[in-house]
Simulated assay, not measured.
Amino acid sequence: MSESILFEILKKSKENKEIIGIWKYNDDDGFWAGYVKDYNEELVTIQHFTKYGKSDGIIIERIENIKSVDFDDDYAKAMQCLIDYSSELDKDEKFELNLNDDEEWQTGILKQLEGTDRIARLEINGSDYFSGFITKLSESDLILHCVGKMGEDEGTVIYRIEDVTAVRVNDIENRKRVMLFKWRKASL
């Protein structure tokens, strides 16, 4: 009988340093992204990476605890981009925002972001968060070109300015989204 498909995938990941995702049984948080450093019939060692593409140590897991392995998918390709350019995420380019003293603080902040390549994370009504580029602003509402966690173009949406309760600009999560968004655009 031929070698199991699982071992074929582990071998390919080890030989080519291909990113895979490993899911464990009975562990909703048990997903790891990385490449295989070594394996045998009982164990696998994985060079783990954070969601920002940073090396995050080696994980040793029993083969029998592996529920499934994701490979050659969009997530793996996006993770490879993050790994290749992870040092770029560390660069926090200066971007100054001017605060105003009026009651419509949101408008003053959002105007400074309108039409720029700066991605913002907007808190809407104190509980929902959306990241994207502010493409247009009126006196009462705004258009946000939404960008997903892995840089996916999630289309545009309109929000009322008064519903914006907080704004985050240029944090590492948003820098990651911009990097992957540009990578996806360049890949088209």
Rank of each mutant, 00 (worst) to 15 (best):
G148K: 07
K136F: 14
E103N: 14
L10E: 03
S2A: 05
S138I: 09
V169L: 09
T156D: 09
D29T: 10
E8K: 15
A166C: 03
G148M: 06
I58C: 05
F95W: 11
G34T: 03
D70P: 02
I109D: 08
L113Q: 11
M1K: 05
I172E: 15
Y129V: 13
Q106K: 07
L82P: 02
R177K: 15
R184T: 00
W32S: 05
G34V: 00
G151M: 09
D70G: 14
D74H: 10
F130E: 09
K136V: 04
L97A: 02
A186F: 03
D29G: 08
Q112P: 10
S131W: 02
V178Y: 15
S13R: 06
G115F: 13
F181G: 01
S140T: 13
G108S: 15
G132H: 11
E104P: 00
E96A: 12
S68A: 15
Y85Q: 13
S4F: 03
V69S: 03
D70A: 12
D128S: 14
F49P: 01
D153A: 05
H48F: 01
V69P: 03
R121M: 11
V169K: 08
E93H: 14
I58K: 05
D72F: 04
I124Q: 13
K176Y: 05
E15H: 01
F71R: 09
M79N: 03
F181S: 11
K91V: 14
S131A: 15
A166H: 06
D38Y: 05
N174D: 10
N26W: 06
Y25E: 07
S127W: 10
E114R: 12
F95V: 09
E103H: 10
I58S: 03
D102A: 10
V167C: 11
K37A: 02
K24W: 00
Y52M: 07
Y75H: 08
V167I: 13
D73N: 15
E64L: 12
T50Y: 05
E162C: 06
C146M: 13
D102C: 12
I124E: 12
I124R: 11
V69Y: 03
I19K: 02
I83Y: 02
L82I: 01
L97N: 06
L43R: 10
L82Y: 04
T116L: 09
D171A: 14
G155N: 07
D163F: 00
D56Q: 04
T156W: 00
E173S: 15
G151I: 01
I63R: 12
F130V: 11
L10F: 08
K54F: 08
M150A: 07
R160D: 09
E104L: 13
Y129R: 13
S140H: 07
R121H: 06
S127M: 11
S55D: 13
D38G: 08
L10Y: 03
I158G: 05
A186N: 11
H145I: 05
S140P: 00
T156V: 01
Y35L: 02
W23I: 00
E104F: 11
E42C: 00
D29H: 07
L97S: 06
S127V: 14
I20K: 03
R121A: 12
N125W: 01
Y159K: 04
K24C: 04
L6E: 04
F31R: 10
F31Y: 12
S4T: 12
A186C: 06
Y52I: 02
K185E: 13
Q47F: 02
